[in-house]
């Protein structure tokens, strides 16, 4: 079986995979940053008492979570131009990922905030803190600790979802695999290399989470110093 497996072709295509790797990496970073912004805004809206702010956020989050990312991507890529909005494919791809992931991140952050006990909120209220002060000094520092692991999970999902951008011909990792598969009729070599690159990204993200936890001074609550 392995005699048919051409490592030489992989080596030959390595520069292409290198470019795809770099593209997936940076577009994931940009998308994730956008998703964080979208998520924070949606979550802030969702936590307000005012229905006027809450309702649009809830509808948006439900709509995104109820529909496939591919459908959303196709809507932005094929649908928007018909409505007169023409955007470059890379921009459409990043937008789709950010808008999609943002809905999930909004729920992750909300769960983190709601996991903080009512007693913490009351302690802040009783000491005369405003809503903003309670959030900044009491709730968010604690919520961040519980939010990091699921946020990392979402980042990994986003990296893998970015493979869909190959369908709108963004030159990223999966696209590199497709090219090798179609140019040389070597789908095994192509997609295994692609998979290996995603694995590298996965472990990179995992170590980043450990590092960021330290950088944020995150001490699991209840542990001794």
């Amino acid at each position: 079986m392995l005699e048919n497996f051409s490592f030489r072709t992989i080596v030959e295509y390595l520069p292409l995979f290198g470019q795809g790797f770099a593209a997936t990496l940076w577009l994931s970073i940009v998308s994730f940053a956008g998703a964080l912004a979208v998520g924070i805004i949606l979550c802030a809206m969702n936590l307000q008492r005012s229905r006027l702010l809450q309702l649009p956020a809830k509808i948006y989050i439900d709509a995104i979570r109820a529909t496939p990312l591919l459908a959303q991507l196709y809507f932005l890529y094929f649908g928007l131009p018909r409505l007169g909005v023409v955007l470059p494919e890379l921009f459409v791809g990043i937008l789709a990922l950010a808008l999609n992931s943002g809905a999930y991140i909004a729920e992750i952050i909300r769960a983190g905030i709601l996991s903080i006990s009512r007693g913490q909120v009351e302690a802040g209220i009783a000491s005369g803190m405003t809503y903003a002060q309670r959030m900044r000094l009491v709730i968010l520092p604690q919520a961040i600790r519980v939010t990091i692991p699921p946020l990392l999970g979402q980042a990994i999902v986003l990296v893998k979802d970015s493979a869909l951008l190959s369908l709108i011909s963004v030159a990223e990792l999966t696209r590199a695999g497709q090219l090798l598969a179609s140019d040389r009729f070597m789908p095994a070599e192509g997609f295994l290399t692609t998979a290996a690159c995603y694995l590298v990204l996965y472990y990179g993200l995992k170590s980043l989470a450990v590092f960021s936890a330290r950088w944020l001074g995150v001490r699991p609550i209840g542990s001794r110093t």
Binding site: E122, A126, S127, G128, M129, P141
Partner: peptide
């Protein structure tokens, strides 16, 4: 509320702050 101290049954200390940070948080920020 800044004139009224409230002690809870469940203490409700801030778990991410040291004892000294717990007692100085509101004086500094409020």
């Amino acid at each position: 509320r800044t004139e009224i101290g409230f002690v809870f049954q469940a203490f409700n200390l801030y778990p991410h702050k040291t004892a000294l940070e717990n007692v100085t948080l509101a004086p500094i920020h409020v």
